[in-house]
Amino acid sequence: MTAPSATLHRSAAGVVPRGARPKTLTAGRIGLIVFLAVSAAYVLTPLYVMVVTSLKTMEEIRLGAIFALPAAPTVEPWIAAWSTACTGLTCEGIQVGFWNSVAILVPSVVFSVLAGAINGYALAFWRPRGSNLLFAFLLLGAFIPVQVFLYPLVRISALLGVYGTLPNIVAIHVIFGLPITTLLFRNYYAGVPIELFKAARVDGAGFWRIFFQVMLPMSTPIVIVACILQVTGIWNDFILGLVFAGRENLPMTVQLNNVVNTTTGERPYNIHMAATILTAAVPLLVYFVSGRWFVRGIAAGAVKG
C-alpha cells in the first residue's frame, strides 16, 4: 500500500528525488558546477587539439601554439591522411586500413555474436553436463592476458595454412570474443522466465526451434549491446590484428601506428592527427549514436546477471 502513495508523492514533486538536492545557489553548488565544467574541459581537450591540429598547415603548427584555432583552416591534411599518407614504403593513405578493418569487423562481429547467443542459450536453459566448468574456462579466457595464448595460436594457424589471412584474424576475433558474448547472453537468458522455455518444450519444440523462434526474437536488446561491444572492441584492437591479420589485411589501428611512429624526418602532425581522428571515428560514432546502450554493455560485461 505504500507504493501508490510514494508514486503520488513523487509525481507531486515533479521529479523523482535522487540524492541531495540543494535549491539555492550556495558556495558548494558553485564549486560543484566549476568542478564539472573544468573536468569536461579537460576531457575534451585532446579531442579539441586533434581537430584544430588536423585543420592547420605545417607552417602554422611550427609556430607551436597547439591550442590555438587554425588561422586559415584547411582540409588538405584530411585528404592526405585518407589517400596519400605513407606507411614505410607505400603511400596509399589510411583508407587501406579503414577498408581492411571493415572487412575484418563485419564477419567477426556476426560470428561472435551468433556464437555467443547459441552458447548463452544452451548454458542458461539446457545446462548440459559440464556447463559450469565450461563457463569457468570461458571466464578465465576473458581475463587472461592474450600474450599467454599468442605464440601457440600462431603455430596452429601456420600448421593449418591460414596464418596471416583474413579468415585467420576473423577466427581469432571470434575465439577471443566468445567469453564476453557468451557471458552477455547467458546473463540475459538467466533473466528470462524458465516457464517460457518449459512451455515451448511441452509444445514439442526442440533446441533450435526454441532458439530461433522463441529466444532470438526476444533478444534484441542484448544483441544490440553485444554488437556495440564487439564493434568497438574489434575496431580498437591492435595486438591481434598486428599478429594475425598479415601484411595485406592490417587493420586501421596498426596502420595508423605505422603511419605516425615510422615517420622519419619532419613529422606532418596535421596529417597524423587527421588520420588519428579518422581511426577513432567509427567507435566514436557508435558511442554517440548508441548512448545508454554503450554503458549497458560495459556494466553487463562484468556484473553478474
Binding site: 585532446p46 591540429t53 591492435f238 595508423l256 567507435p283 566514436l284 557508435v286 560495459i298
Partner: peptide, 18 residues
C-alpha cells in the same frame, strides 16, 4: 565517457602530440 570508446592507439598518439 567518450574517451573510453577510443582505442589505446588513438589515446597514445594524441597524448604523444600534446
Amino acid at each position: 565517457l567518450y574517451p573510453y570508446s577510443m582505442s589505446f592507439i588513438v589515446t597514445g598518439l594524441v597524448w604523444q602530440w600534446i
